[in-house]
Computed example of a mutant assay.
Amino acid sequence: MQFYVARIALGCAEAGFLPGVILYLTYWYPSGRRARVTSRFILGIAAAGTIGGIVSGWIMHNMGGVYGLKAWQWLFLLEGSPSIVAGVIAYFYLADKPEQAKWLSPVEKAIVQAHLAEDASAKAAVEKGHDFSAALRNPWVYIAAFGYFVIPWAGSVLNFWAPTLIKQSGVTNVWYIGLLSALPWIVGAIGMLIVCWNSDRVVERRWHFMACILVVAGAVAAIGYLPSNWSLSIVLLSIMCVGYLSVTALFWTIPTAFLSGTAAAGGIALISSLGQVGGLTAPIVIGWVRGATGSLSWGMYTVALVLIAGGLTILLGIPRRMLRENKAK
Rank of each mutant, 00 (worst) to 15 (best):
I314P: 14
Y142P: 00
V202L: 15
E79Y: 01
G266C: 08
E204V: 09
K167M: 07
V247L: 13
F17C: 07
A120C: 03
Y27G: 15
E99G: 13
A90T: 07
K327W: 03
A135C: 04
R33D: 08
I268N: 13
T293H: 13
A117V: 00
L78H: 05
L307H: 02
A101M: 05
Y148L: 12
A265H: 05
N198Q: 14
Y67W: 08
V216R: 12
S199R: 02
Q73T: 00
F258W: 01
G267M: 06
Q113V: 01
L10G: 12
S83Q: 10
K97N: 11
L180K: 05
I166D: 09
P106N: 02
A263D: 03
L305S: 12
I89H: 12
G64R: 02
K329A: 05
G275S: 10
I151S: 09
T172P: 04
T38H: 07
R137F: 06
R320I: 02
L312V: 11
M60H: 00
R33T: 02
I194Y: 15
V171T: 13
R205F: 15
Y29T: 10
F41V: 12
V112I: 12
Y244W: 02
V141Y: 08
S273G: 14
D96V: 04
A189P: 05
Y27M: 11
W197M: 10
I254M: 14
L43S: 14
S121N: 12
T26Q: 13
V150Y: 14
L237H: 15
L116K: 09
L280Y: 15
R201Y: 15
G261L: 07
F209I: 06
L116V: 04
T293D: 07
W74C: 04
A13S: 15
W28R: 12
G243W: 01
I51T: 05
S228M: 06
L75C: 02
V187I: 10
G218H: 09
S83W: 07
H130V: 13
I268P: 06
S295Y: 07
D131E: 03
A47R: 00
C196V: 12
P184E: 02
G53L: 05
Y142E: 00
W207M: 15
S295G: 03
Y67F: 03
A35G: 11
E79A: 02
W252R: 05
P283Q: 06
G44R: 11
E127D: 11
V171M: 14
L226Q: 07
A328R: 14
A264R: 11
P82N: 03
Y91R: 15
